[in-house]
Amino acid sequence: MKHIGKLVLLSALLSSSLAFAQITEDPEDRREAGREPLRTQTPEGRPLPFGQRLRIGGGISSLQIGNAQIGTPFIIGVSPVVAYQASERLILGTGVNYVYYRYRLRLPNQTITDQFNQFGVRGFGMYEVVPSLVPNLFAHAEYEGNNIRYPDNVAREYRRRWVTAPLLGLTYSQRIGRLAGINLSALYNINYNADIYSRYVYGSPFVIRVSFF
Rank of each mutant, 00 (worst) to 15 (best):
L18Y: 08
G5D: 08
S185P: 00
R160E: 12
I176E: 01
S198D: 08
L10C: 09
V121Q: 09
A186C: 11
M126T: 08
A68E: 15
R31F: 00
V121S: 06
R149S: 14
R102D: 10
S15M: 13
G181H: 04
D152P: 01
L10H: 03
E44C: 01
R159T: 02
L14G: 05
L107I: 05
L63F: 13
N191A: 08
E142D: 07
P49R: 06
E44I: 02
G169E: 02
Y84D: 03
Y127Q: 04
F20C: 12
A180G: 15
V81D: 11
Q52M: 11
D26T: 04
I56K: 08
N153S: 15
S204W: 04
I91A: 04
L54A: 07
V210T: 14
T24L: 08
R209S: 12
E28F: 07
L167M: 11
T24S: 13
R160F: 02
Y84I: 06
P151V: 14
V210E: 07
V82Q: 04
N97Q: 07
P37D: 05
S185Q: 02
N189H: 10
L54D: 11
P205S: 05
V201N: 00
A33Q: 04
G59L: 06
I23N: 06
L13M: 06
A21L: 12
L38D: 00
V81K: 08
R89M: 15
L90D: 08
G123P: 04
V129Q: 11
E128N: 15
L168R: 02
R175P: 01
Q174A: 07
R35Q: 05
Y192H: 11
N193Y: 15
Y103F: 08
Q69A: 12
M1H: 08
R149G: 03
S61H: 09
G34C: 02
R30K: 07
D26A: 05
S11P: 01
